[in-house]
Simulated assay, not measured.
Amino acid sequence: MTYVLLTGGAGYIGSHTALALLRAGYQVISFDNYSNSSTAALQRVAQLAGADIISVSGDIRDEAALSAVFRQYQVSTVVHFAGLKAVGESVAMPLHYYDNNVAGTVTLCRVMREFKVKKLVFSSSATVYGDAKKVPIAETSSRSATNPYGQSKLMIEHILEDLVKAEPDWGITLLRYFNPVGADSSGQIGEDPNGIPNNLMPFISQVAVGKRDKLSIFGDDYPTPDGTGVRDYIHVVDLAAGHLKALQYLETNQGIAAINLGTGTGYSVLDMVKAFSSVNNVDVPYQIAPRRPGDIASCYAMPDKALKLLGWRAEKTLDDMVRDSWRWQSQNPDGYSDS
């Protein structure tokens, strides 16, 4: 029996991908240190899928712990989610980010090579495009980074590219996500950030459920239709389906491919707030605040390559995104701590 190993499998995107893989008939192992995730997520995934998931607690920087998993189970492919992801925190703690994200990935690849597992789906990010000169953003756009988090993702991309040059029998997909939102339609799994949310949708949801007083919208004077920042929001269920497609692609392909996962449509912050309020019939009080350093006006994907290589396109609508986000938050006002 072969397994797909998900590093960071209990996290927001990891748990939704675990569910998609289990429903597609794959055997799944989650390897997670639970620094920003919960064992309850995996328990709920198993219940929703009606299938078991193997859960191992460990850190990707721990070579012995990783090796033990590969020694015990026949792993065929790795989907690598594990990583720190808060931009502001990365600025304050750059060494922590480079150690966890970059050094952890090198350790993972070293163990994979030792056990002759050379298929990897990497959780990259649209942050590797920096402040793109042109939108929509294609995979051929120049890459740069404006903070240590983005730099860590870009470094890992370069490392994996060099690895494939040296060892062409590897098969690697670099999935560059845009802005994941939403939750499984059951409302049983969703985004449960530690402390104050860094992302827009969980902040909107927490305001709507009464955990926070109001939303701060950082800047209303950008060169966009309503002055607020425009982003490509993608439903996490669509994102999980993209990982399934990427994994299937690697079954017959070697080399390395960078692929955007986005909708190709940009929505402003005010678009998201208004849609959330309208679809869910809840108030989301907000205030306009000064721009944040490093924020850009507009960022959305050119998703054509994903359709061409993977046969994947985003299916979920904006209404789906805000409805499923609210279902998760309203059923789990304190996230997984409710369980």
Rank of each mutant, 00 (worst) to 15 (best):
P202H: 08
Y3G: 05
Y286K: 12
A145L: 02
L163Y: 03
S37C: 09
C299F: 14
I189H: 04
V79A: 13
N260K: 10
S185C: 10
S186K: 01
Y129C: 10
A145D: 03
Q151S: 12
G14W: 02
S76T: 09
Y267M: 08
L95M: 15
K211P: 01
G266K: 03
M112K: 01
L5E: 08
S278Q: 15
A126I: 04
N253I: 04
T7H: 10
L48W: 03
A20W: 04
V45H: 04
K134A: 14
S330W: 05
S30F: 00
L6H: 04
G311Q: 09
I256K: 01
Y129K: 01
V4L: 10
N253V: 01
I259A: 10
G227R: 06
E89Y: 03
N199T: 14
D220N: 15
R231I: 09
G130Q: 10
V79T: 06
V28W: 01
F115H: 14
P94L: 09
S142G: 13
T252W: 07
L19S: 03
L84S: 11
I53E: 05
D226N: 10
L108R: 10
S268M: 09
E139S: 09
F203A: 15
D184K: 08
F81A: 08
G227A: 09
Q331Y: 01
D192C: 13
A132N: 04
